[in-house]
Design a protein around this nucleic acid. Sequence first.
RNA 1: GCGGGUUUAGCUCAGUCGGUUAGAGCGCCUGGUUGUGGUCCAGGAGGUCGUGGGUUCAAAUCCCAUAACCCGCCCCA
Length: 460
Amino acid sequence: MSKPSTKPPSGMRDFLPTEVLRRRHVIDVIVRVYEAHGFAPLETPSIEHLSTLLGKYGDEGDQLLYRLLHRRDALARPLEQAAAEGRTALESELADQGLRYDLTVPLARVVAQYKDLPRFFKRYQIQPVWRADRPGKGRFREFYQCDVDITGTTSMLAEAEVCSAVATVLGELGFEQFTIRLNHRELLRAMIRAAGIEEALEGTALVAVDKLDKIGRDGVVAELEQRGVASAAGQALLDILATGTRDNAQLLEQLRGQVDARGQQAIDALAQLLELCAHNPAGAHLQVSPDLARGLGYYTGPIFEIAVPDLAGSLGGGGRYDDLVGMFGKQQVPAVGFSLGLERILVVMAERDMFPTQQFGPDLMLCWLGVPPAAVVGVATQLRAAGLAVEVFPDQAKLGKQLQYADADGVKARFAGILGDKELAAGELTIKHLESGRQQTIALAQLDRARLTALASADE
RNA sequence: GCGGGUUUAGCUCAGUCGGUUAGAGCGCCUGGUUGUGGUCCAGGAGGUCGUGGGUUCAAAUCCCAUAACCCGCCCCA
């Protein structure tokens, strides 16, 4: 029998210590900023009922859901049944659970389930999601999303708050050039109506529009035609979308003249959001983008997407979804949210070398020779009680080997503590600063974090 | 799902026209005698050459298939 592969499955990754520290650095910033905006943490299970997940993301999304087979008898029964009937078992007979595809749908489920949540439920959620997608650059089958959402209000203040949160995060991480592209689902619909495209083709039109910056104007017209949209209507739609100017207010006014009353309402909403964001960190990054469509099916109002130069995909996206909670219960609860893609952020930060140099490794590696192991354990315990992060060298070895290990890549203790029979007898420890090599012997009782810090800075 | 590329030691990679025992650098281990690492010196371990077939006296090298990974496209965070 051949040995199992030691690689993780395609699109999934192991995170070794340095990588975990980088991820943690980013997550720490996100948590701090989200909490500073008044969001509370939420966690939900990795697994949801398929009925919760299906039909929320569009056909593509349904295809990409990881499904979990029934266990034991529940799996065997439908297989036997189908075999007896001379057919293949249906997917729906074999699975009724799946891995979550995003964090928005679980939130909607939670809001529908717990009726005593605050009237405005502001939650953030940082957890992995799974998509049975083909992996690529910055694209994985298991990846983290970092969502902020506000439920219970249709106020544009909620949009402004989630935009503020993500813009602040990116700013604190060191991103300067990023754009929050902004559009409105109802404005898109109005533009499609104005172009004379029938309502049944609205969905396909949206998908095609979303590709504008990739396949170009002719490509979109071709794709629209292929899917039954008359060339003239396609051209008309693109003419509206091409309404172009960098100035957001001016752009909205130009669009206003081309759409009906409902479209104008959407424009009013966007104008109001821009006005609010003029007073928060998002304002400087917002760019009205009539061609922004976004794939997910559940958006109803403003939609956002974060673009940075030199990354094909986005760093995150979001929007308003006033009907999603209602799909789980009788009550309609409006909601808006924004999601940051952790791995996308990490990919760009790695490319641009945006990580601060991170201190890791213990404060002190306890190296010992000629003393009983029980004494080593005792000293380590005493030092930890004094607030130091202490690692003990586990084996009996020459002092040189112990020091070498203490300073090795992936270990990187700041100090070595040398415990020999002399130190033990005197109740002392020889402290060696590994970077400079300087050392001195100090009474154990006097060792604490402050003393070590003083030792380190004395060397500089 | 489509096109292109890669696959040889833990890592980065050489390997000629097919030719004996497959190499280097880094890393790792041991030693250079006592309780002091990073430099230096000497030695050592570690490879089914992605996998399976084929051609050949002989295959890391040529041919076919297959898998994994990477880069584009599509789609998304």
